[in-house]
Computed example of a mutant assay.
Amino acid sequence: MSDIPSSHHQTVAAYVDQAQAVISAITSLAAPIGQAADLWIESLRAGGKILFCGNGGSAADAQHLAAELLGRFLTDREPMPALSLTVDTSSLTAISNDFGYETVFSRQLKGIGRQGDVLVGLSTSGNSRNVVNAFALARTMGVRTVGLTGQHGGAMAELSDILIAVPDARTNHIQEAHITIGHLICAIVETTLYPNNA
C-alpha cells in the first residue's frame, strides 16, 4: 500500500467528501421519499406493479431497484411485482429502430402498464426525452409517476406526481444519491408490507 501515490489518497478523500455531502442532503428529501414509499405501497396492495426506466447508469439503477422488489432486499418475503423497462434488448432495439429511441419506454408502458401502476423514472437532468415521453403517457393511463432527478427536475418536474430532486448538478453524485434513495424506499416498502419479516 505504501507505493500508492499520495495523489490517489487525495482524490479518494476529496471524492468521498463530495459524495457524503450529497448523501447527507438526502435528509432534506425525507418528505417526498416517504410519499413515494406510500405510493408504491398503495399500488402494490391494490395489485399494481412498480415500473422503472432510465438511461445509462440510470438504466442500471432501474434494473437494480426492480430486482430489489422482485427478489429480496433486506429480508426473505414474497416477491413484489416490479419490472425495469431497460432490460429487454429485443424490445429496446425493435422499438428504437421502428419508432425512434424517444419512444422506447412509452411504447412498453402502453403495452404493459395499467391504471394503478407506478412508473419510476430516473434521469439526472430530468430531461431524458424517452423518460419524459413515458411520464406524459402515464398521465393519460392513470399510472402514477415518481421522478428521481437532479437539482431542478427538468421537464420531469411538471410530469411527476412525486418529484425527488437531488440538490446537486454532478451526474455521478446524483446517481449515488438515487440508488441510496431507492434503497430507502425499498426498505420502507418491505418493512411495511412484510412487518413480520423485519
Rank of each mutant, 00 (worst) to 15 (best):
Q108Y: 05
G71D: 13
V143H: 10
D168S: 14
N130Q: 07
V132S: 05
D117A: 11
I162E: 01
H152E: 14
L163M: 11
S90V: 13
E176K: 11
L193C: 11
R114E: 08
A94C: 14
E102P: 00
I179A: 03
Q108I: 13
N172D: 15
L163V: 04
G147H: 10
H173Q: 15
G150N: 06
G71S: 08
G142M: 11
L184M: 15
I112S: 02
T171D: 12
V87G: 06
Q115A: 15
N127M: 08
G142I: 05
V104P: 03
A136D: 11
V120R: 08
I185Q: 12
V104K: 05
E102T: 06
F105K: 06
M156D: 05
Q115W: 00
C186M: 06
G142E: 13
E158S: 15
T180E: 02
T86R: 06
T145N: 06
E190S: 08
A169V: 12
I164S: 03
L122C: 08
T124N: 01
A157I: 00
L83Q: 11
V87I: 13
D168I: 01
N172Q: 14
I179D: 03
G121N: 08
D168G: 01
T86L: 02
F135Q: 07
H183L: 02
G116Y: 07
L85P: 09
R107T: 14
A177Q: 10
L193R: 05
E158V: 07
D168E: 14
D98A: 10
P79C: 05
S90G: 13
A82R: 06
R144M: 09
G153M: 06
S84G: 14
N97V: 07
P81N: 07
G71K: 03
N127L: 09
D76Y: 11
N133Y: 04
S160M: 02
G113A: 03
E158D: 15
T191Y: 01
D88E: 12
L92H: 04
R170L: 08
I112C: 14
L148I: 07
T192V: 15
G116W: 07
Q175G: 12
G113W: 01
T103K: 12
F73E: 10
D161C: 07
V146M: 02
V146N: 01
G111I: 06
I174S: 11
R129W: 00
G126H: 03
E78T: 10
A187F: 12
I181K: 04
R170Q: 12
S123W: 02
E158W: 00
